[in-house]
């Protein structure tokens, strides 16, 4: 990554995690290409980059779509530490996938060692209301307990798809700004890549 200031737009690295079949790839593809695929094809790992306008600022988003299937867990773990924000997805039609979010959360905290890592809890497949197994209430409570936002999405209808990605990027951006400030204040340590243009105080 270039350390030179300006030139390149800020790059935010987002990682999709969650059990197999909850719709991580579906959400990613909907966000990237406005497409929805009915067939389920388990992912090993996929990565995408998109240029977007975030509150008037040109930024790039790198999305890493990981495997829910445990077979590929080892590969998944290698990516975690370079992720700057996480979308933790479950399907509202499957309680097991909701329970699994707990473990994903713990694993991420372990790797990042950071309670405030940008993170959203996402209940997907909201279009399948009639098959709902996880109540909004229940999920919100868990999110509250973790101190993260909870959003329900549908990769099929595109409901809240942009929202989860944009909200997460805002958190990442805010986080980076904060880090830059503490850097300037203390002059040392906590060095993270300075992707944002430093504003003159």
């Amino acid at each position: 990554m270039s350390k030179k200031p300006t030139a390149q737009p800020a790059l935010h690295k987002v990682i999709m995690v969650g059990s197999g079949g909850v719709g991580k790839s579906a959400l990613t593809l909907q966000f990237m290409y406005d497409e929805f695929v009915e067939d389920y094809e388990p992912t090993k790992a996929d990565s995408y980059r998109k240029k977007i306008l975030l509150d008037g600022e040109d930024v790039q988003i790198d999305i890493l779509d990981t495997a829910g299937q445990e077979d590929y867990a080892a590969i998944r773990d290698n990516y975690f530490r370079s992720g700057e924000g996480f979308l933790c997805i479950f399907s509202i039609t499957e309680d097991e996938s909701f329970q699994a979010t707990q473990e994903f959360r713990e694993q991420i905290l372990r790797v990042k060692n950071d309670e405030n890592i940008p993170f959203l809890l996402v209940g997907n497949k909201s279009d399948l209301e009639d098959r709902r197994k996880v109540s909004f209430q229940e999920a919100s409570e868990r999110a509250k307990q973790w101190g993260v936002p909870y959003v329900e999405t549908s990769a099929k209808t595109r409901e809240h798809v942009d929202k989860v990605f944009y909200d997460l990027m805002r958190e990442i951006r805010a986080r980076k700004m904060e880090e830059n400030k503490t850097n300037n204040g203390r002059g040392k340590d906590k060095s993270k890549k300075k992707k944002l243009k430093c504003t003159i105080l």
Binding site: A45, S47, Y79, S82
Partner: peptide, 22 residues
């Protein structure tokens, strides 16, 4: 990566290669 810590550039390359594969 399974054996040791790789450089930042190498980590960058990991995402890049993954992207090209996708």
């Amino acid at each position: 990566m399974n054996v040791c810590c790789i450089s930042k550039q190498r980590e960058e390359l990991l995402w890049e290669v993954q992207r090209i594969i996708t």
